[in-house]
């Protein structure tokens, strides 16, 4: 009983910490100084350097989806609708989730490890001692950079996925290129694109808040950094799935 209670208190403590980090990062993003250089640098690290892995994962997702859908739907004689199903599920669901998971693994882990090692070597204390707000200079800049770049990465990934699907459709499903694109365009609505970009925006804020919070609160030396980094990826991934469910529930039908 007592052990469970402790676990519950710990849980609440972390929820509070993550929420507080979210609030701080959001508020500080609109307060001077803006640290434009740091934000752009972070966008480069987070966005540009994730490009290759995003291109890889989304292209292969498109390839596999087209093969699977093509195969299953030809059983029902609906092979021609492969591209519409593929594009909508890619844009609304798989693109945002898969790319956000990849970014949580690459970028979220990196943020926690970097901030965590700064915390255990007292660099964050030193920054405060020198009169600079580390929540502003370190957390808010990463928060902003991730919120801007993740939706962009997802948009790029969606396009790659569609191209992957197109490649399989024309080469092995016998669907013409024109038909693939016109069918896709016919069934892809603005609301799908909106929902598909809202998700990564929310996931980005989640990944940033979790990874910054866990990084800032590392104690216990290098071992603590490793543990926090693992936890950062696990917690972000779980929350991406939970939030995805909730956002889908709210947006499906509504928008």
């Amino acid at each position: 009983m007592k052990a469970h209670f402790h676990w519950f208190l710990d849980f609440l403590h972390h929820v509070h910490g993550i929420t507080e980090m979210f609030g701080r990062s959001l508020a500080l993003s609109f307060i001077k100084p803006f640290y434009l250089r740091e934000t752009v640098e972070q966008m480069y690290h987070i966005g540009f350097k994730s490009l290759s892995i995003v291109l890889m994962t989304s292209t292969f997702t498109g390839l596999v989806l087209a093969m699977q859908f093509g195969h299953e739907m030809s059983v029902f004689g609906a092979k021609m609708y492969t591209s519409s199903v593929l594009v909508v599920s890619l844009v609304r669901e798989l693109g945002p989730v898969i790319i956000s998971l990849v970014v949580a693994g690459r970028v979220g882990a990196g943020i926690t490890a970097e901030l965590g090692s700064m915390a255990v070597t007292e660099q964050i204390d030193a920054m405060r001692a020198l009169g600079t707000n580390p929540y502003k200079k370190l957390a808010a800049t990463r928060f902003l950079a991730l919120s801007i770049t993740l939706p962009l990465l997802v948009a790029i990934g969606d396009l790659c996925g569609m191209l992957g699907g197109w490649l399989v459709s024309v080469t092995s499903l016998g669907i013409s290129s024109d038909y693939y694109w016109s069918n896709a365009a016919h069934y892809l609505f603005f609301s799908d694109i909106f929902a598909g970009l809202l998700k990564p925006f929310i996931f980005a804020m989640t990944i940033a808040s979790i990874s910054c919070y866990l990084g800032f609160s590392v104690t216990g030396g290098t071992k603590g950094v490793g543990e926090a980094t693992t936890r950062s990826v696990v917690v972000s991934s779980i929350l991406i799935f939970i939030l995805d469910f909730l956002i889908t529930k709210v947006t499906l039908g509504a928008i």
């Binding site: 700064m118 070597t121 007292e122 660099q123 204390d125 030193a126 920054m127 001692a129």
Partner: peptide
């Protein structure tokens, strides 16, 4: 008004 020299120096690496 205060300068601090941290134990591990805490230089920004």
């Amino acid at each position: 008004k205060i300068g601090m020299l941290f134990q591990g120096s805490a230089l920004f690496d």
